[in-house]
């Protein structure tokens, strides 16, 4: 019963942050600020959705001691790590490519990268 409540809270947090990430993707003015919203918020939301799955698997394992739930736990944790690392590296690559393709940040107060001329 406690496990149900924890799963419910984790899923609510995850869905809320996923929705905020997509809302920011629709709302922000240029590509760099959109990257802020999509990278951080959807990574955090997906981590919490996966934590809900992990808590479910732990409660099932303690109830039934069926060893396939151990596999669910480890594989979900590996998926979370793959997601976090690849999202950070992918957003870095997109930001670098966008700047190289000549798209400058639109509302901007300072741009040291254009001044450095790399």
């Amino acid at each position: 019963m406690i496990a149900d409540t924890i799963i419910f809270i984790f899923l609510i947090i995850g869905l809320l942050f996923n929705a905020l990430g997509v809302l920011g993707l629709l709302r922000f003015p240029d590509v760099y600020t959109r990257l802020h919203a999509s990278t951080k918020a959807t990574t955090f939301g997906s981590i919490f959705l996966c934590l809900g799955v992990v808590v479910f698997a732990i409660s099932q394992y303690l109830g039934t001691s069926d060893s396939q739930y151990l596999m669910v736990i480890t594989h979900t944790i590996i998926a979370v790590f793959a997601l976090a690392i690849t999202n950070a590296a992918g957003s870095h690559a997109i930001a670098r490519a966008a700047h190289r393709s000549g798209q400058k940040p639109d509302p901007v107060v300072v741009d040291k990268l254009t001044e450095a001329g790399l």
Partner: peptide, 26 residues
């Protein structure tokens, strides 16, 4: 409006697809 915006959207869709796959597996 530009191609980098579309890549950002595709990246977001991929992340959400991974989450949906894990949930549907359960």
């Amino acid at each position: 409006p530009t191609n980098p915006d579309r890549v950002v959207a595709v990246d977001t869709i991929n992340t959400l697809t991974v989450a949906v796959m894990i949930l549907l597996g359960v």
